[in-house]
């Protein structure tokens, strides 16, 4: 099974993002063709002799030469990943999964709502819409982090904001000295966010509870359930629908998702232990 065989990538750059998150930039050792993917897709990353986990791609879909992943050091594999440095080698299988609806969203306003590390799978969307700016209406990013020190891609967010054709609103759960921005959960930003609910596509990534309340607020603003997209997370061992681990009701998150419209999974969403 070719899809089960990883190929080697070398780390070009290791970036420590925050206290517990980091980004690796990779280049293929075996192929010169680069790596093409669509925003929202993920790879299975193999740390030699340790294990393999699914991580979404966080880089620019228009730059196929470099493959970028951002993650948090929480489990056995990611903690080992956090020790990697420039020149080290990892195995990659992918890309897998259904992407964010960036094509369907053409002509619409786009609201991106991210919580914590949930910004990583959405960053390719930001790159994509900014590179194809003329095809989209207003672009709004609502981002919530735990504290000001946990704000992911901070320098880049500041740079994006200086473009003037994207609204970026950041909030933190807990402020620290010197923080003059918003305080509170990300859902509090939705009622006043400047988008036209009739022609808007929303893309959400964060903890399930955050996504649930975000959906409620977006529906209150008048967004249709088919216009709201979320990305789901479950245990995955294969990425291609064979291992059974990522089943979510009728869906295999690896191949039917990870991106779903809320309409598709409304009957499953929020059900306990599903």
């Amino acid at each position: 099974m070719q899809a089960m065989i990883p190929s080697s990538y070398r780390i070009q750059k290791f970036i420590k993002e925050t206290q517990d998150t980091f980004t690796i930039e990779l280049k293929s050792i075996e192929s010169k063709n680069g790596f093409t993917f669509e925003p929202g897709q993920f790879n299975m990353i193999y740390i030699y002799g340790i294990g393999e986990i699914p991580i979404s791609i966080s880089g620019d879909p228009n730059k196929s030469g470099i493959l970028t992943h951002t993650t948090r050091a929480v489990g056995i594999v990611t903690k080992e990943m956090a020790k990697l440095k420039k020149g080290d080698i990892v195995g990659i299988r992918g890309p897998f999964g259904r992407p964010w609806p960036v094509r369907e969203a053409v002509g619409n306003d786009i609201v991106i709502v991210a919580g914590g590390i949930g910004l990583a799978p959405l960053r390719p969307v930001i790159y994509h819409v900014l590179e194809n700016r003329e095809y989209y209406g207003r672009i709004i990013l609502l981002y919530g982090a735990r504290t000001p020190q946990d704000i992911l891609f901070r320098k880049e967010l500041e740079k994006f904001r200086s473009r003037l054709d994207i609204d970026i609103i950041v909030t933190v759960d807990r402020a620290i000295k010197g923080w003059t921005g918003n305080v509170g959960v990300v859902t509090t930003l939705i009622p006043r966010a400047p988008f036209d609910p009739i022609n808007t596509i929303a893309m959400i990534c964060g903890p399930e509870i955050m996504m649930r309340y975000t959906i409620i607020e977006l529906i209150k603003r008048g967004l249709g359930k088919d216009k709201i997209y979320v990305t789901m997370e479950r245990n995955m061992k294969c990425g291609i629908g064979f291992c059974g681990h990522c089943q979510y009701g009728t869906e295999f998150i690896c191949k039917d998702g990870p991106v779903f419209s809320y309409k598709e999974i409304e009957h499953l969403f929020g059900k306990r232990e599903l």
């Binding site: 002799g49 340790i50 294990g51 393999e52 061992k237 291992c243 059974g244 681990h245």
Partner: peptide
């Protein structure tokens, strides 16, 4: 359903990936 396990020798010179039947009844499954 199956799971995937990685094994290495003690010096991490060689590794093997094994696929094993798995059960949705285990706690680790999800």
């Amino acid at each position: 359903c199956m799971t995937v396990e990685d094994y290495t020798d003690l010096e991490r010179n060689s590794a093997e990936r094994i696929q094993k039947w798995d059960s949705c009844y285990t706690l680790e499954f999800t």
